[in-house]
């Protein structure tokens, strides 16, 4: 176990270094966006003096390197800065700027929570579903079932997400009104209510992510079926299902875990279209809105969260793959 602990520590350290480089790239990229918040908010009335004043207020006149380290320093202390839009809105209404409500954290946190909820519900449906489908496809490989599963999942991954969403709305909300077609959830809703409203977007996303996971499960298992230990299991008179679940699957876990991690990361970072269709208040929508009005602190915070999600999930996948190898779990 000593070596496993060391590998995990190493990967964690590497993850942090990666996150640092990503933060530089994010900052540079966001600052290269044409136009800035002052111009975007003032629109037609952007006199040079007004633009200058807002810039000074927000600190946009400082050199980029200073701003980067100000931002990084804040992030390291858990302060993601103040949302330009919220701050500006507040100054118009006479409230104090920089209060807790205008902070990026206060804006992003509830949205991120919603996104995690949607991702969680989707994962809870999609991961077991694809694993079972993959195992069955491997068990009945080259049968009608296998082909149907492959064609079905490939069709769903090849169709645009919004199209899938509308199809599901048509069948599950309009023709058979079982689920609400709008998923606007609020903080004070009960868990059951939230779950019900989240189900349609979750099902849509399930259709999107199943193909990868199912096909990887199938391929990873079939890859092993020619191994001598699988032949041995069959020659012991073990039933085909048990051969696959008990003998092939435990040795096929590493690639499957990695594909699951990639898809979970996608669920956290890439679901804007589905959020828009179902009016789901997730982080994706906030991100797109913030880019539109050049609300740089929010954009940066979202990017950083996305990067961290990717790094953490891949890290987790790495660690689980390592742990799935008995040679590492039980050294000589």
């Amino acid at each position: 176990m000593q070596s496993v602990a060391r590998i995990i520590a190493q990967r964690l350290g590497l993850g942090l270094v990666t996150l640092f480089f990503v933060s530089v790239i994010i900052f540079a990229a966001v600052n290269m966006l044409p136009g800035d918040f002052a111009q975007a908010i003032l629109g037609q009335g952007a006199t040079p003096e007004a633009v200058e004043a807002i810039r000074r207020d927000l600190g946009l006149d400082k050199p980029p390197i200073t701003r980067y380290f100000d931002w990084l320093g804040g992030v390291l202390q858990g302060d993601f800065g103040t949302s330009f839009a919220a701050a500006n809105f507040r100054s118009f209404t006479g409230a104090e700027t920089g209060s807790g409500l205008g902070s990026v954290a206060a804006q992003v946190a509830p949205r991120f929570e919603n996104t995690l909820f949607l991702a969680g519900v989707t994962a809870a449906i999609a991961v077991p579903f694809s694993l079972i489908l993959g195992v069955l496809a491997a068990l009945f490989r080259n049968s009608i079932f296998d082909r149907a599963a492959n064609i079905g999942t490939l069709t769903s991954i090849s169709s645009p997400e919004f199209f899938l969403a509308y199809i599901l709305i048509l069948f599950l909300a309009v023709l058979n009104p079982m689920l609400p077609s709008l998923s606007n959830i609020y903080a004070d809703m009960s868990f059951g209510e939230r779950l019900e409203r989240t189900l349609l977007p979750a099902l849509t996303l399930t259709l999107v992510v199943t193909a990868h996971m199912m096909r990887m499960t199938r391929a990873a298992i079939i890859n092993l079926l020619a191994s001598p230990y699988i032949e041995m299991a069959r020659l012991k008179g073990i039933s085909p299902l048990r051969v696959i679940v008990k003998h092939a699957l435990p040795n096929a876990l590493a690639p499957i875990i990695n594909v699951i991690a990639l898809n979970l990361a996608y669920l956290i970072t890439g679901v804007v279209v589905v959020e828009v269709v179902f009016v789901y208040p997730g982080i994706g929508q906030l991100f797109v809105d913030s880019v539109k009005i050049r609300d740089i602190p929010v954009v940066q915070a979202c990017c950083l969260i996305f990067a961290a999600a990717y790094i953490l999930l891949n890290l987790l996948a790495d660690i689980l793959s390592i742990l799935s190898n008995p040679r590492l779990r039980h050294p000589k």
Binding site: P228, M232, K236, H247, P250, N251, P326
Partner: peptide, 16 residues
């Protein structure tokens, strides 16, 4: 009827 394979190292399942 039982079977003993050439390479025991490859024919035992590494996971169990």
């Amino acid at each position: 009827i039982a079977y003993v394979a050439q390479s025991a190292a490859a024919s035992f399942n590494p996971a169990h």
